[in-house]
Design a protein around this nucleic acid. Sequence first.
DNA 1: CACAAGTTTCAATAATTATTGAAACTTGTG
DNA 2: CACAAGTTTCAATAATTATTGAAACTTGTG
Lengths: 181, 181
Amino acid sequence: MPLEKPIQPDQPAPTLAEAKAQFINLWGVSGTSWGVSKTLAQVHALLLVSPQALSTEDIMEQLTISRGNASMTVRELIDWGLVYKELRPGERREYFVAEKDMLQVTRCIIAARKRRELDQMKRTLDQLAQLPGNPADADYQAFHTVLSDIQQLADTSDKLLTRLMRAERNWILDKFLKLFL
Amino acid sequence: MPLEKPIQPDQPAPTLAEAKAQFINLWGVSGTSWGVSKTLAQVHALLLVSPQALSTEDIMEQLTISRGNASMTVRELIDWGLVYKELRPGERREYFVAEKDMLQVTRCIIAARKRRELDQMKRTLDQLAQLPGNPADADYQAFHTVLSDIQQLADTSDKLLTRLMRAERNWILDKFLKLFL
DNA sequence: CACAAGTTTCAATAATTATTGAAACTTGTG
DNA sequence: CACAAGTTTCAATAATTATTGAAACTTGTG
């Protein structure tokens, strides 16, 4: 709740905490239009703007979410490769840090979305394209044209995304953009 | 319902109708992982594999959805630029055809997703970056670094998507892929 | 092995999002 | 302008998805 509507500060300029809260809020909203849960995006944002590693307890407190939610969400972020566990010798409690290199973050996000949105579809398309039918039927041929156009498109996207994922920072900035824009 | 579980055909090979039904199903499932409603994706798929234009009535019937749903969904597809109205002289009823050129379809989808996912975020980011704070504070600077990294990333994505949208078929296939893969 | 300090799971519930369907609207025609 | 043949809107409801929180589990230590 303190993160949603920060109290009016004494000085006119917003405090750092407020700015962070707004950022977490923005990321949460954007997250839902990106197809991830609000909480996932918010935890990611919180860790991105935290200089130190945070514990599950910290995350629960700062975002006012339940322990279960925090635990599951952090685990998912680790799966995506966006967050790392930080273990402190002699402490039982686990701490979490976000990957701060935005290029790396982008790679993880592209990889995750590709897995979710593209790979499954390609598998099913391949299967569909195999269904044999009457090849003399004009209607059937039209259907197959649509199908193979989509397959080609999926393949092209796949290649493009794979390439982007492997891209180096300089490659993106220099070769790519300067060449094409 | 006939579209969900097609009855066993007499001949071993699947009928065209079955293959189409499976495609509509696939597209519907993929749609949800792409963040659009199942119905939107299904109506699009249905129109993609229909050689003739279909009326609202046809769509309702073939997908067993309500009139309201069919009406709203078709209107949204028209907004996206994926479907056109076809008016027949002397007829009150409206018919709908899908854009069949997959390159064009891709452009529409990229444009729509960019609008939804990127443009709003860029606007809010710009706003956030303006919030002034204490520039001497190291913590504050770290925050601003994250912010401007994200902005740069958003800008790069924006340019890349804009470029892709304008791309010609041959440009994509030849120059782009052959050069980079 | 008992306990403390944590983490994870998962059934119940809350929140969100999509869909229905009846009423309101639009448009062309006699 | 009344009516027929359609389309659109939108409040109510259904379906889906996210979240809670208590119970089960895990792990290290005396």
